[in-house]
């Protein structure tokens, strides 16, 4: 579905990604793990067209032989193609209500009836959001905010959901709940690219995974294979070989 080929990205004068190759297939959860500063968030920002691409390609396969180059689009056009990001640190519209946040998730959509149905569905998926629909997003707890951030991204009806550090700053039980939710959504057919520092949790739910080190992909494989890999275990899981 999504292919990154020889992707080179710079932040200001610093080259962060030195030509990475990565693929996400339809229906998968693909995890991108790595240390702080390896370039994980930069990769997602490049896909969402928040950063200019200096080299290489980002291609979105729409099936039936059509494909689009995301690296030449504006952020709004990328969203219109169904590639939606749930950013690090949640980035909610804190002064707006829960409902308004959800509606902004559907900003690019014109199908009002379907948006209404999706709103109802979000209340089913995350009952607490339905209860607090008229409360400001900033007044929610950390876990509730994370659910709102995911729900807001889902409101765009993503083909591909980019998840950046969904476990960041959450209490352990909440992390479990979020990862259960992610897995459940995937079973309903949402394809995901998941960036995580919590490599163990990410690899456990991922179909496949890539390891990013200082702007280069150093390893890839199925989630299970990487969980067993001695180098990965030592470097990212804090476990012995």
């Amino acid at each position: 579905m999504l292919t990154l080929a020889e992707l080179v990205v710079e932040r200001g004068a610093t080259r962060v990604l030195h030509g990475i190759d990565l693929e996400v297939r339809s229906g998968e959860i693909v995890a991108l793990i790595g240390a702080n500063g390896a370039g994980k968030t930069t990769t997602l920002h490049a896909i969402s067209a928040l950063l200019p691409v200096r080299g290489g390609r980002i291609t979105l396969d729409l099936g039936e032989g059509t494909a689009k180059r995301l690296d030449r689009m504006s952020p709004a056009e990328v969203v219109a193609c169904g590639v939606v990001q749930c950013p690090e640190g949640r980035q909610l519209f804190a002064s707006l209500t829960v409902l308004e946040n959800l509606l902004l998730g559907a900003y690019r959509r014109d199908d009002r009836e379907a948006v209404k149905r999706d709103l109802a569905r979000m209340s089913e998926l995350f009952p607490v959001l339905g209860e607090r629909r008229n409360q400001s997003a900033g007044s929610l707890s950390g876990g509730e905010q994370m659910m709102l951030a995911i729900a807001r991204a889902l409101m765009a009806r993503p083909r591909l959901l980019l998840l950046d550090e969904p476990s960041l700053g959450l209490a352990p039980q909440m992390v479990d709940r979020i990862f259960e939710t992610i897995l459940a959504l995937n079973r309903e057919g949402v394809t995901m690219l998941l960036v995580e520092q919590n490599a163990l949790a990410a690899l456990e739910i991922a179909d496949r995974a890539y390891v990013l080190e200082t702007g280069r992909i150093v390893q890839s494989g199925t989630g299970a294979a990487l969980l067993d890999d001695p180098a990965v275990r030592a470097a990212y899981l804090g476990l012995g070989a």
Binding site: S48, L50, V79, L92, F93, L96, L103, L104
Partner: peptide
């Protein structure tokens, strides 16, 4: 309105507004 909401969203959080596809 949608545009009005977009304006408030943009004033609240520029990054998120771009990620929602707001022009």
């Amino acid at each position: 309105t949608r545009m009005g909401r977009a304006m408030r969203a943009l004033a609240d959080n520029l990054l998120a507004a771009r990620l929602m596809g707001i022009d």
